[in-house]
Design a protein around this nucleic acid. Structure first.
Lengths: 192, 192
DNA sequence: TCGGAACTGGCACTCAGTGTCAATTTTGGC
DNA sequence: GCCAAAATTGACACTGAGTGCCAGTTCCGA
C-alpha cells in the first residue's frame, strides 16, 4: 500500500512538473502553437510517455480548473447550513475572487488563453460540466425542495454569472473581480 | 450581383446536402467514429473539397445550433418591449420548447450526441458563446440599468436553465421539455 | 537474487486540418 | 459561339494529436 502511494506521489510530482513546463511554453507561444513534442522535451520525457500522464494537451489546463472547482465546492460546503443558495454561492466564490484580486495577472493570463484560443473550447465545456456536477448537489441542499435538477440549474446560473464577470474583468484593468461578480449576480437576482 | 448570389444558392444547397448526409452517418456510427472521408464520400465530394465548405467536422453540428439561436433571438425581440427579462426569456424559449415537445426524437438524438460524444464539447462551448453574444444585448434592453454585462449574465443564467432542463429531459421519456424548463427557471427565481 | 509488475521509449498507424498546384468548370465580355 | 479570367475541384504532401504494440529497463517483494 505504501508503495502504491509512493508511486502516486512520484506520479503527481511528475504531473506538476509537466504542467509547470507546459505553462511556460503556453505563455510564450500560446496553446495551439505549442506542440506536445515541445512540452515533452521541456519536461524531459518522450512524447509517448507524456500521453501516459495526460489524456491530452487539454488536461494540462483542465487540471488547474478542476482544482479551483474543488476549492469552490469546499467553500460552499463550509457555509452555514441554513444560508440560502444564492448568497452561499456568492460567498463561496470569494475564495477564488479574493485570490484573483490579490494577484490578478496569472488569472488574467489564463482567462485570456481560455477565451481567445479556439483549441481550449472543449476544456471550457468540460469544466462547466464538472463544476456543475460537484456544485449541483451542494446547491440542492440549500433549496426549498432539495431537487437535484433545480440545484444543477441554480449552480449553472451562478456559474454563468462567474463567467460573465470573468469576461468583463479580463478586459477591464484596474477593476476588481468582486465588483463584476456582484454586478452579475445582482442582475440575476433582480431579473429572475 | 445575381451571379454571386446564384453561387451562394448553390453553395448553401451543397452545404445542406452535406449536413444531411453527415447526420445519417452520425446517427448510425456516432460523431467521433464517423470520419470526414466517409462524409465526403457520402456527399459525393473529395475530402479536400469538404474542408472548403466547412471549417471542420464541428461545423456540421454548430450550423444547426446557431440556427436555433437565431430563432431564439427573433422570438425574444418579438416580445413586448415592457416585458421583464426573465419572463420574456421563458416565453422566447417556447419557440424551441414547443417544437421539441411536438417531435421529441430528433432533439433527443441531438441532445444525446452533444452530451455523450467527447468530440462535441468544443461545439457546445462555441454555441454558448454565440447565443450569449446574440441574446445578451437583447436582454440588456429589458434590464433596469440596460448594462450589457448584466444582460450577458442574465442571458447566461437563462441558458444554464435551458441546458439543465435539456439534461433532465433527455433521460426522462414521456415528460415534456416545458416542464423541466419551468422547474429550472423557477428554481433560479426562488433562489436568486 | 530472482521473477513479475510497472515504467519508458520507439515505431507505425489513423484521423483532422492545411498549403500547394494542376486540371477543370463556370462566367462575363466580345 | 469564343476566349480569357476567375472560381471550383481533386490530388498530393505535410504537420500535429492521439493510440496500439512491442521491446528494453527499472523497481519491488518473495
Amino acid at each position: 500500500m505504501s508503495s502504491s502511494s509512493l508511486r502516486d506521489v512520484a506520479r503527481n510530482a511528475v504531473r506538476d512538473e509537466v504542467v509547470r513546463a507546459a505553462w511556460e511554453l503556453f505563455a510564450e507561444h500560446g496553446f495551439e502553437a505549442t506542440t506536445v513534442d515541445q512540452i515533452a522535451a521541456a519536461a524531459g520525457m518522450s512524447r509517448r510517455t507524456f500521453f501516459r500522464y495526460f489524456a491530452g494537451k487539454d488536461e494540462l489546463i483542465l487540471d488547474k480548473l478542476l482544482e479551483v472547482g474543488d476549492r469552490l465546492a469546499d467553500a460552499l460546503a463550509a457555509r452555514p447550513a441554513d444560508e440560502a443558495a444564492w448568497p452561499a454561492l456568492r460567498a463561496a466564490f470569494d475564495v477564488v475572487v479574493t485570490a484573483q484580486d490579490q494577484s490578478p495577472e496569472p488569472s488574467r493570463r489564463l482567462g485570456r488563453l481560455l477565451r481567445d484560443e479556439p483549441g481550449t473550447r472543449g476544456t471550457m465545456e468540460e469544466r462547466r460540466r464538472r463544476w456543475t456536477d460537484t456544485l449541483g448537489p451542494l446547491v440542492a441542499e440549500r433549496l426549498p425542495d432539495h431537487r437535484l435538477a433545480a440545484g444543477r440549474a441554480v449552480a449553472g446560473a451562478a456559474l454563468a454569472c462567474y463567467d460573465a464577470a470573468t469576461d468583463a474583468w479580463i478586459d477591464a484593468p484596474d477593476t476588481r473581480f468582486a465588483t463584476h461578480l456582484d454586478l452579475a449576480m445582482k442582475a440575476v437576482t433582480a431579473a429572475a
